[in-house]
């Protein structure tokens, strides 16, 4: 995977997290992940399609998700109920939407699918290609941004 694909997602995550929580995140070390891995307690999954295809995954603990949802909702959240899950899902939507806007500024024509949230640590995820991973540390806990994207060869014009 091209390293240039992850930067828009990290930049978007920083920008969105700071706006919705009011707290500045800190970037961790870039790593490469095998194409099959086990999810964290909460994983937001957003598909990317167009001339770059793949998936963006945002993994975090249940406690982190609950605290971030509380910050987004500006209220005390004790459990990840339907409204809190919707807030976390929307976080994934905003980060991915913001990221593909940045990708489009680099000349890529891409779109996203509505995000899904997976709850549970025993879920085995598989991506077409190994993902690049950047942990983002926030006062609410750490979020792993996983991006597995590849350019799609476009058919030559007739």
């Amino acid at each position: 995977m091209k390293a240039e694909f992850i930067e828009p997602f990290v930049g978007a995550a920083f920008s969105v997290l700071e706006t919705v929580t009011g707290q500045k995140p800190v970037r961790g070390q870039l790593a490469l992940r095998t194409s099959t891995f086990t999810t964290q307690q909460i994983t937001i999954v957003a598909g990317v399609n167009g001339n770059v295809e793949g998936v963006a995954l945002y993994g975090m603990s249940l406690a982190t998700a609950t605290r971030i949802a509380g910050a987004m909702m500006a209220s005390q959240v004790d459990e990840l109920n339907d409204m809190a899950l919707s807030a976390i899902s929307e976080l994934g939507n905003m980060v991915t939407g913001n990221a593909i806007t940045r990708l489009s500024q680099n000349g890529y024509d891409v779109d996203i699918t509505p995000p899904s949230v997976i709850k549970g640590t025993q879920v085995e995820m598989s991506t077409k290609i190994p993902a690049l991973v950047v942990p983002i540390n926030t006062p609410f806990g750490s979020i792993e941004v996983n991006v597995a994207l590849a350019e799609v060869a476009m058919a030559a014009a007739a």
């Binding site: 939407g97 913001n98 806007t101 489009s104 996203i112």
Partner: peptide, 8 residues
């Protein structure tokens, strides 16, 4: 009112 800001 959207997360997508592409010019097109």
């Amino acid at each position: 009112c959207t997360a997508l800001g592409q010019q097109n």
